[in-house]
Amino acid sequence: MRMTINRRRFMTLAAAGAALPAVSRFAYAADPLAMQAAWINDAEFTGYFTAFDNDYYKDEGLDLSYLSGGPDVIPESSIIAGKADLTLTTPDTTIKAIVEQGAKFKIIGTQYQKNPHGIISLASKPISNPKQLEGKTLAVPPVNVISVEVMLKINDVDRDKVNIVPYAYDPTPLIKGEIDASLDFTTNVPYTIKQAGGVDAHSFLLYDYGYTIFQDTVVVTEETLATRRKELVSWLRASRKGWDENLKDPNAYPPKFAETWFKGTGRTIDNEIFFNNAQKPLIENPGGVFAMSEDGIAKTLDALGQAGIKGTRDMFDTTLLQEV
């Protein structure tokens, strides 16, 4: 842990140095492996933090650095730019970029078998299926509007009857009743609503209503896949070990990160524990964490096809997982 922090400190300083003359840091392809996360440090990434602190990466001979995400961080950009070697993405944006812009990406695994995105409402005014969204105001992050529109279409809901407004990840408008529902991680927000508003939340997964796609797919560039295959397999193996260890008892690990990974995020450890428990059934898979079954890939492609994103099987590479 200490090593990692020091290295990250160093990278920050290096970046500060790079800012002085507009010097490129894209030029150096780092020998150590770097991963770009999709969001700020929360329980979504507990498996990786576990693998870090238990030296699973080190044992695999990896010198891994971890880059936190945020709203303006486009995970795929980091691997195109060479800031990171692998990243966690939403498959619809990744596949859309491959199809429309010829981006050379390969999906080599998936953290969530079932996408945690769902429609969240208050238990006092519950919305239990897509049809009930008609005539309601739904807050959706602009990024996910396409997903929601597809889900509505699959379920024969008239798009024009749902008032879609932007969602800025703040549940206050939902608690105050300004909106009727929001699209967010069902693994996370119900807890916040209970804690902050003292009211119960109600939710359903998009996945259960036809939008059957993975989430937090592990993505690399074709070049990285060709040149660093060995390290990627090691990363998958160590990360799987981290997730297995973490999910053994979802209450165990989050408190251990209170003063390190989760320090100062503005969230609470109880929230992370709730998140970690809620995500367990969405991650676990008979084939092991990250596994992508043929059925799962077909479902993802099918759902995206309905969104007009025509992905193909060869965008997924399951051979690394077989080596694990």
């Binding site: 700020i40 800025a168 703040d170 549940p171 206050t172 902050a196 508003g197 969230r267």
Partner: peptide, 10 residues
């Protein structure tokens, strides 16, 4: 960053 993490806390 702190503001961002806190935004989801209502």
């Amino acid at each position: 960053i702190y503001l961002l993490g806190s935004l989801g806390r209502a």
